[in-house]
Design a protein around this nucleic acid. Structure first.
Length: 863
RNA sequence: GCCGGAGUGGCGGAAUGGCAGACGCAACGGUCUUAAACACCGUAGGGCUAAGCCCGUGCGGGUUCGAGUCCCGCCUCCGGCACCA
C-alpha cells in the first residue's frame, strides 16, 4: 500500500535535518581559495525583506526563485552563498510605535521572527549563520563607520538647499523618493523647503554610473534605461550672456545701475541655435532677479510673480500642459554671438534646480520657447533650415522644429550641419572666453538625513569651539537612545532626548551636541550584501579579500520597484568603496533578475484593499512544496501574475501524482541497486538493441526533459516551462508503466528505463519541491539529494529513431509522414509525395519548389 | 509628449521564421461509489453543406515556400520619465 503524501510531516522532517547539520552554510574561503579566485563558488542573493509584519506572496516568489537557483548551482558543484537578512529600520515600525507606544525595536524583532519562521517553513536553503539585521547596533555601527569614511573623503557633506519635505512623514526626502511630486511612501504631495541637510555626493559618480553599465553582465534593459534617464546626462555648453546696463536698449544708460555687465551663464544643448535666441528666461527664484529689478517699474510685478511661482505646487508647475506664464523684467542681455540685446523674462517653466536656472530662448527650435514667444509676441527666427510642414505659407514658423538641418540666418556659420555647428560655435565662443563645453546631469546629490527616530544616527557632533566633529571610530556605534515620544515634530524626535543629544567633544573635551537626524534606510541597504561576507565580525564591516572572493553577486533577484533607488545607491556605494580601496570591484551585482508582481482580484495585494493571500494558509493546506511550485508555475517569473486558488490545487495534484508514481516504483523494488551495482545506483542501462520502442521513447523523453529543465533554470529563468516539462515526463512515465500487456513493466529493460525516468524526475524536481524529493530519494535508498550532481542528458537518447513530419502543400498541412530520423532528403520527399493527402492537392500541378526541414516538415509548392 | 514592454482559447500561459494553443486551471462525458468528494480514463479554438474543407495569435499592409515570431503604419493596455533648456 502506497503511503499517502503528507507534506507537513515530510517538510518539517527535512527542515530539521538541514537546520541541524547546517546544510546550507557557506564556509568562509581559505586563503588558498581566495588566492585561486573566482570559480567553483557563487553568490545568489534576493533583495532582503522589510519586516513590516509577515511575509507576503511577493516574498514567497522572490525567495523561492532564489532558492531554485541556489539549489541548482549547488547541484552543479558550486559552493553557494545564499544568505538572508532584514532591512529593519524605517518608518513603518516607527509609525506603529507612535500609534501603540511599543518600542519600534520590539515590533521589528517580532516581525523578523515571524518572517524568519515563514522562510524556514518554506524550506529556503539559507545560510542562517550569516543573517544580518540593519537595526541592530552590531550592523549599524558599520553603517555609521561607512558614513564617516564617506565624510572623510568629502563625499558626505552638509549643505543648505531647497529640499523635498513630506508634511505627512514630517521629514525630508531624497529626489529618488519623490514620485511625481509626491512622497514615495505615503503619496502626500511634497513641499519645497530650504534646509541644511546631509548629502552624499553621488553626482560626482554620475559619469561612472553611466559608463559602468558596460561592466554588468545581464541586467534587464529597462532597468538600465530607467537609471540612464534618471541620471539624465545632457551634453552641450555653458554660454555666458552679459546683463546690459539699464537703459542700454534705448541708449539712455543708467550709470548708477550696479548690475550692468553682470555675467549670467546658461546651459544649452543647442549652441548651434544661438543666432535664433530672441529672448532670455530666468527662473523666478534666480538669485539675481531681485537685484536686477530693484527700484524699476517691473519690480512689483516680478515680486508678485515670483511669490506666486514659489507657491505653486511642484506638480502643477512641472506640468508641461500648463499654459506658459511669465513677466518681463524690463532688462536685457547681450547675445554673445552678435551683441543683440534680447529681453529677459522670468517664467516658471524655467527651473532653478536644473542647469543654471536661466536659459536662452530659441522659439524657432524649442517647443516651450515657441509657445512662450507666441503668447508674449516675441520674434521667431529660423536658424536651422526647417522642413515646409513646420512653416506657414508666408515662410514663418508654424511650430518649433527640433530636428537636424543646416544653419541659416547665423552669420559665418550658415551652411554648417547642426552637429558640426554645435562644436564650432562653442569653440568660437570659447576662444573669446564666452562659452565652454559642458555636461549637465539631472541626477542630484543624495539627501540622506531624516528627521525621524527609527534609523541609524548620523555620527557627527557639533562643538562650539571645534565645529563639526566626526565621532571617533572607537566611540561607535552611536546608539539610538530609548525614548517614549517618537512623534516627529518637524525635527527629529532625537533632538528632545537631552541626555543623549548633549555630549562631550572628543577633540577639546568641552560640551557638544549630537546630530539629531538619522540616515535614510537606503543607506543601510546599500552595503548589506557586503556584510553577509562577515556577518558575525565585530572588528570590521567586511574583509576585503573575502568580499572580493564572493562578490560581485552572481545572481541578484528582486522587484523592479528598486530599479533606481536601491540599485543605483548600491552601485554608487560600491564605487566609493572601490575608490577607498575597501573592495576590489566596481559593480555589486553582476546579473540582475527583476521578478513580476503577484496580483489578486485584479489588483496589487494590499491590506487596505483586503485582497491579501496569506502564504501560511496555503503552506498549511497544501505544503511548502506545492506553494513553491505553484508560484513559479503561474507564469514567466519576470511577468506579473494573478493568484488563482485553483491553480495551487492543480500543482498539488501533480506533486501527489509524482509521489504515487515514485512510491509504486519503490514498492515494486524497481529503485533498488541491482546485484553487482554500487548502492544507490541503478546500474548500467540495457543495450540499445534490448529496448522496446516504448522504452526507447520514454528514455528519449527523460533526456529531452533533462535538457529542457536545465536550460530553463540556468539560462532562461523560465521556471514555469521547466515545471511543465517535468509534468509531461510524469504523464508519459505514468502512462508507459502498466496498462494492457504490462507496458514497460513487462520486461527487464523496460523496468530499468522506468527506474531511470523516476530517478531523473525526482532530481529535476528537487529545486522546486525539495522536501518531497528528499523524502522520495530517501525512500529510493539514497542519501542527500541536495548534494547530488545535476543530471546530464545522454546524447544518444535525445531524439527518436522515427520522426513524424508535417507535409504541407503550398504552406498548408495536408498529411503527416513517419520516417526514420536519418532518412535522406530524397527519401523524405519521395515518401511525402506518395501520401494520399498530398497526391490529392498536387495532382495536375507542377512542383516548383520543395522544402525539407529535417525532422520537422516538408513543404511542396505546386502551381 | 518622450522612452521601454506587452496584446495568443472561457482563464494562466507554450511555441531557435517551420504542424498555433505544450503544461495547467475551469468545463463537459465516462469509470469507481448507495451517493458525493477524491482518484482514474476521455473530449475540448471558431465555423461549415463536417470522413473533408475554411477561418483563426489587437488592426491594416509588406517580406518569405512558410510569419504569433521579421519590416512598415496604426489601435489598446501597462511601466518609467516628463516645461531637463
Amino acid at each position: 500500500m502506497v503511503r499517502s503524501y503528507n507534506p507537513e510531516e515530510i517538510e518539517l522532517k527535512w527542515q530539521a535535518v538541514w537546520e541541524a547539520e547546517k546544510t546550507f552554510h557557506a564556509p568562509d574561503p581559505t586563503p588558498e581559495e581566495m588566492a585561486a579566485g573566482k570559480g567553483g563558488h557563487t553568490y545568489v542573493l534576493e533583495m532582503f525583506p522589510y519586516p513590516s509584519g509577515s511575509a507576503h506572496m511577493g516574498h514567497v516568489k522572490n525567495y523561492t526563485m532564489g532558492d531554485v537557483i541556489a539549489r541548482f548551482r549547488r547541484h552543479q558543484g558550486n559552493r553557494v552563498m545564499h544568505p538572508m537578512g532584514y532591512d529593519a529600520f524605517g518608518l513603518n515600525s516607527e509609525n506603529v510605535a507612535i500609534q501603540t507606544g511599543e518600542h519600534p525595536a520590539v515590533f521589528t524583532e517580532r516581525a523578523i521572527a515571524t518572517i524568519n519562521r515563514q522562510l524556514r517553513r518554506l524550506g529556503v536553503a539559507i545560510d542562517w549563520d550569516r543573517e544580518v539585521v540593519t537595526c541592530r547596533p552590531e550592523y549599524y555601527k558599520w553603517t555609521q563607520w561607512l558614513f564617516l569614511q564617506f565624510y572623510k573623503r568629502g563625499l558626505a557633506f552638509k549643505k543648505e538647499a531647497p529640499v523635498n519635505w513630506c508634511p505627512s512623514c514630517q521629514t525630508v526626502l531624497a529626489n529618488e523618493q519623490v514620485i511625481q511630486g509626491c512622497c514615495e511612501r505615503c503619496s502626500t504631495e511634497v513641499e519645497a523647503k530650504k534646509l541644511k541637510q546631509w548629502f552624499f555626493r553621488i553626482t560626482d559618480y554620475a559619469e561612472r554610473l553611466l559608463e559602468d553599465f558596460d561592466k554588468l553582465e545581464d541586467w534587464p534593459e529597462r532597468v538600465i534605461t530607467m537609471q540612464r534617464n534618471w541620471i539624465g546626462k545632457s551634453v552641450g555648453g555653458n554660454v555666458v550672456f552679459r546683463l546690459a546696463p539699464r537703459g542700454a536698449e534705448n541708449g539712455q544708460l543708467d550709470p548708477a545701475d550696479p548690475t550692468g555687465g553682470t555675467e549670467i551663464t546658461v546651459f544649452t544643448t543647442r549652441p548651434d541655435t544661438l543666432f535664433g535666441a530672441t529672448f532670455f528666461v530666468m527662473a523666478p527664484e534666480h538669485p539675481l532677479v531681485e537685484e536686477m529689478v530693484k527700484g524699476t517699474a517691473a519690480e512689483e510685478a516680478c515680486r508678485r510673480y515670483t511669490w506666486q511661482a514659489m507657491n505653486t505646487s511642484y506638480i502643477e508647475r512641472s506640468n508641461a500642459e500648463k499654459e506658459k506664464t511669465g513677466v518681463f523684467t524690463g532688462r536685457y542681455v547681450e547675445n554673445p554671438v552678435n551683441g543683440a540685446l534680447i529681453p529677459i523674462y522670468i517664467a516658471d517653466y524655467v527651473m532653478m534646480d536644473y542647469g543654471t536656472g536661466a536659459i536662452m530662448a530659441v522659439p524657432a527650435h524649442d517647443e516651450r520657447d515657441f509657445e512662450f514667444a507666441c503668447k508674449f509676441g516675441r520674434e521667431v527666427i529660423e536658424v536651422i533650415a526647417s522642413p515646409d510642414e513646420f512653416k506657414n505659407a508666408d515662410g514663418t514658423m508654424k511650430e518649433a522644429y527640433t530636428g537636424d538641418g543646416l544653419l541659416v540666418n547665423s552669420g559665418p556659420f550658415n551652411g554648417l550641419f547642426k552637429t558640426d555647428a554645435i562644436r564650432k560655435v562653442t569653440e568660437w565662443l570659447r576662444e573669446q572666453g564666452k562659452a565652454d563645453f559642458a555636461v549637465n546631469y539631472k541626477l542630484r546629490d543624495w539627501l540622506l538625513s531624516r528627521q525621524r527616530y527609527w534609523g541609524a544616527p548620523i555620527p557627527i557632533l557639533y562643538c562650539p569651539t571645534c565645529g563639526e566633529v566626526p565621532v571617533p571610530d572607537e566611540q561607535l556605534p552611536v546608539l539610538l537612545p530609548d525614548i517614549t515620544d517618537y512623534a516627529p515634530k518637524g525635527k527629529s524626535p532625537l533632538a528632545a532626548a537631552e541626555h543623549w543629544i548633549n555630549t562631550t567633544c572628543p577633540v577639546c573635551g568641552g560640551p557638544a551636541t549630537r546630530d539629531p537626524d538619522t540616515m535614510d534606510t537606503f543607506v543601510d541597504s546599500s552595503w548589506y550584501f557586503l556584510r553577509y561576507t562577515a556577518a558575525r565580525r565585530q572588528d570590521l564591516a567586511f574583509q576585503k579579500d573575502q568580499a572580493d572572493y564572493w562578490l560581485p553577486v552572481d545572481q541578484y533577484i528582486g522587484g523592479v520597484e528598486h530599479a533606481i533607488l536601491h540599485l543605483m545607491y548600491s552601485r554608487f556605494f560600491c564605487k566609493v568603496l572601490y575608490d577607498l580601496g575597501l573592495v576590489g570591484f566596481e559593480e555589486p551585482f553582476k546579473n540582475l533578475f527583476t521578478q513580476g508582481m503577484i496580483y489578486y482580484k485584479g489588483a496589487k495585494m494590499s491590506k487596505s484593499k483586503g485582497n491579501v493571500v496569506n502564504p501560511d494558509e496555503h503552506v498549511a493546506k497544501y505544503g511548502a512544496d506545492s506553494l513553491r511550485s505553484y508560484i513559479l508555475f503561474m507564469g514567466p517569473a519576470e511577468s506579473d501574475a494573478e493568484w488563482n486558488d485553483q491553480g495551487i490545487e492543480g500543482v498539488n495534484r501533480f506533486l501527489n501524482r509524482v509521489w504515487r508514481v515514485v512510491n509504486e516504483a519503490v514498492d515494486a523494488g524497481r529503485m533498488a541497486a541491482p546485484a553487482g551495482a554500487a548502492a544507490g545506483t541503478l546500474g548500467p542501462l540495457p543495450a540499445e538493441s534490448e529496448l522496446s520502442p516504448a522504452a526507447k521513447a520514454l528514455l528519449v523523453k527523460v533526456n529531452q526533459t533533462i535538457d529542457k529543465v536545465t536550460v530553463d533554470i540556468d539560462q532562461r529563468f523560465h521556471f514555469n516551462t521547466a515545471l511543465a516539462a517535468i509534468m509531461e515526463l510524469n504523464n508519459e512515465l505514468a502512462a508507459a508503466r502498466g496498462g494492457q500487456g504490462g507496458g514497460l513493466e513487462a520486461d527487464a529493460a523496460g523496468r530499468r528505463v522506468l527506474a531511470e525516468a523516476v530517478e531523473a524526475m525526482v532530481r529535476l524536481l528537487e529545486p522546486f519541491a525539495p522536501h518531497m524529493c528528499a523524502e522520495l530519494w530517501e525512500m529510493m535508498g539514497r542519501e542527500r539529494i541536495w548534494d547530488q550532481p545535476w543530471p546530464v542528458a545522454d546524447g544518444r537518447f535525445l531524439t527518436l529513431d522515427a520522426v513524424e513530419m508535417a507535409v504541407q502543400v503550398n504552406g498548408k498541412v495536408r498529411d503527416r509522414l513517419v520516417i526514420a530520423k536519418d532518412a535522406s532528403q530524397d527519401e523524405v520527399l519521395a515518401a511525402a509525395k506518395a501520401l494520399s493527402g498530398v497526391v490529392k492537392h498536387v495532382e495536375g500541378k507542377t512542383l516548383v519548389k520543395q522544402i525539407v526541414v529535417p525532422g520537422k516538415l516538408v513543404n511542396l509548392v505546386a502551381k
